[in-house]
Amino acid sequence: MIWSLYSPIAGYSVNIFLLLGLGGSVGFFSGLSGVGGGFLLTPLLIMAGIPPTVAAATDSNQIVASATSGAYAHYRMGSVDFKMGLLIFAGGFVGSTVGVEIIKFMREVGEVDFFIEVTYVVLLGILGFLMMADSINCLLKKKGVSGSIDKSKKRFFHDRLFQALPWEMRFNKSDVTLSPILPVFAGGFAGMVAAILGVGGGFIMLPTMCYVLRMPMHVVVGTNLFQEVLVCANITAMQAITNHTVDLALALILLSGSTVGAQFGARLGHKLNADYLKLVLASVVLLVMVKILVELTFSPDLMLGIKGGR
């Protein structure tokens, strides 16, 4: 069978069309709905037989490509807050380094596969239900403004708490004044999760930027993509140096599928109802979550596993 790609790091052959299809469809969904595809691609790679550690590390590498592509487009539109992005990355650098070390430790104790899978069940479960609830809510309202996030300017207790933090800084691009502790802390948490799961961390940073950092919507996506490039580049370097789990051969096929798929998805997204698309994506996310959960709940076919993954 010549249409297989041999992954030298995983020591395993995978069908090239399957990889292109996975990368392309996740990129397509990503471009269609506007959410990052990392959280979906890693579990799909695991299902295709790629060991979880290799899947997560390689996915981080391919996110560098897709996020660079997106960040460049936003940079041209002038919607990237570099100052904020660099502060988030400062936290993300520490967080992602800690995340890689957690993976190394879990690998040594032989629980890395279980750890990644359980974290995915929780993440995909929360994300899938929130997306589904949001899309159903929007479909029910119908008359509401689609695609925009209602950004309340109402001041809550946490707003007052955040304002009490020291060393306030002015972020002209985002038109906000806040303590750098907040973006550094949020970046640190997102970076840690990103390193463990092989995702960009956008699902944490986007709502954080909107609702905690109070950044305007037009700079949120571009700034998030900019920090994702830096954080995922750090994760790729750390995974390559510490765990030797980044597979360039695999990443090249995936990124060629996902970058092109994302562009087609983005073009089609303008023509279709965004709420129905979000509903479809939510269903896919929940299906993947259920599949992993079933595997964790029902008696496995094999009662022994190789310590530290294959």
Binding site: N61, A67, T68, L255
Partner: peptide
């Protein structure tokens, strides 16, 4: 090298 290739491909 992985980072450079991915960033260039994205660009």
């Amino acid at each position: 090298l992985c980072i450079m290739i991915a960033a260039l491909a994205g660009l």
